[in-house]
Simulated assay, not measured.
Amino acid sequence: MGRGMPSMTALLGLLAIAGYQNRDKLAELLKGVGGQPNTGGGQQPPGGLLGNLSGMLGGAGVGGLLNGGIGELLESFKQNGQGDKAESWINQGPNKDVSPPELKQAIGSDVLAQLEQQTGLSQEEILARLSRELPAAVDKYTPDGRLPAA
């Protein structure tokens, strides 16, 4: 992992793939992915890109993904001069928008390249989806103005 931020990369990948509106389905899929056999009716959970992304989590699970991923995201935004935007999503009050170029600067080209490889989406599509989904997703997962517990 280029920047050592697997939770952030996995969180961004999941949001880029399915969007915030499918978060409950994603949580269920992640519980069944990652090398564990599925004993429910012979259906195997989807591998491929969800398998790749959940493999990046190790044993962190969804709570660890949210806590670690949002924390890493906030730190990355701060280091790249975009901390006020990310903090607006966590804190109570209106969320500041983030443009695709600002998002690219904040997450870095190495994370973006990894997301492109893991999701099969173009970098432009990833940035467009994340600039739409990320503020609301972070806001929802930090309802009290704090990072979620692991």
Rank of each mutant, 00 (worst) to 15 (best):
E75Y: 13
L74K: 14
G71N: 09
W89Y: 02
S76M: 13
W89S: 00
G63Y: 11
L74C: 04
F77M: 03
N80H: 14
G68V: 03
G64S: 10
K85R: 03
A86S: 07
S76R: 15
E87H: 06
A86G: 08
S99R: 10
N91P: 13
K96F: 05
S88V: 07
F77D: 03
G93E: 01
P94C: 04
G71S: 12
D97G: 06
G68L: 02
Q82R: 11
L73M: 10
D97C: 10
Q82T: 00
D84A: 07
K85Q: 02
L74I: 15
N95D: 05
L73T: 09
N95M: 04
Q82F: 06
P94G: 00
Q79W: 06
S109A: 14
S109Y: 12
V98Y: 11
S88K: 15
N67V: 05
S109Q: 13
G63W: 13
E87R: 12
L73E: 06
P94W: 11
N95F: 04
P101W: 15
P94T: 05
G68N: 05
G68I: 02
G83A: 00
E72T: 01
G108H: 08
S99Y: 12
G81N: 07
W89F: 04
Q92E: 07
D97H: 10
K96E: 12
I107E: 08
G68Q: 05
V98K: 12
D97F: 07
E75W: 08
Q105D: 00
K85C: 00
E75F: 06
A86D: 03
V98Q: 10
W89M: 01
G69E: 05
Q79F: 00
K96A: 11
S88E: 06
A86P: 09
L73F: 08
E87Y: 00
N91R: 15
K96G: 02
Q105K: 15
Q79G: 08
A106R: 05
L73A: 01
L66N: 12
G93R: 09
K96M: 13
N91H: 15
D84M: 10
V62T: 12
K78N: 07
